[in-house]
Amino acid sequence: MPPRRPDGPPTPPPVARVRLRFAKRGRLRFLSQLDIARTFERGLRRARIPMAYSAGFTPHPKVSWVGGAAPTGAASEAEYVELGLAADVDPEALRAALDAALPPGLDLLACVPAEGSIADRIDGSHWRIRLPGVTETELSRAVAALLARDSVEVERKTKNGPRPVDVRAAVICAVCRAELPDCAILDVVVRHTTPAVRPDDVLTALGVVAVPPLTFPVPPEPTRLEQGLIRADGTLADPLIPNDSDTGRSAGRLPA
């Protein structure tokens, strides 16, 4: 038997690429990005999606995760992934087959052929954060205090130690309302920066700028509703629709 080499014949390039939008819901919001990747790989095999593979001793299916993943514990309606395929298949059939093979809570919302770079179509996120135990009045006061400042830095733990992030600079707009007398809702659009400003960072900033300081008696529940290019009016363009940023307001716009 001839020795096997990792640099054998190159694997064929993908025949087609598709782009998927998926949601991370309910208790599956506690999945980390690695957990999601693992679950997708197994789902792709269960659904018999004709994947293209990388070369080498440990071939991997061509799966590219787009942008920054929603943090562990945060739900999302707008995560994106691209698949490299070994056969050209109907995107909707692929979506339905893969959705059926994934557990409820990892739900595939849309699938389109990949055209252009999706990274160029995403520069912001719209988060909706439920704040049980916080009143709308308290929240509004904190939001007004945050928006009145030019810069509000909080410390973020990163692999390389604590790192300051300017939350205020990343916040494009923020709107409060009351879901219940003792449960406020914050809608906030943040620009993607490095490191990314996460919902936790926004809440930390709100906590420190408010007088008296705002505290969260119950863990807040963040959900990413949209990602896309930030338009002039603070809404986000749909990254799966080419040139959507030119077409005015998207369906999932911020409440007035």
């Binding site: 109907d90 995107p91 979506r95 849309a110 749909d238 629709i241």
Partner: peptide, 15 residues
């Protein structure tokens, strides 16, 4: 098995 497409591309199915 996923049906192989007959037509080059179909319209985006984004919801």
């Amino acid at each position: 098995p996923l049906p192989e497409k007959q037509v080059p591309t179909s319209a985006a199915s984004a919801s």
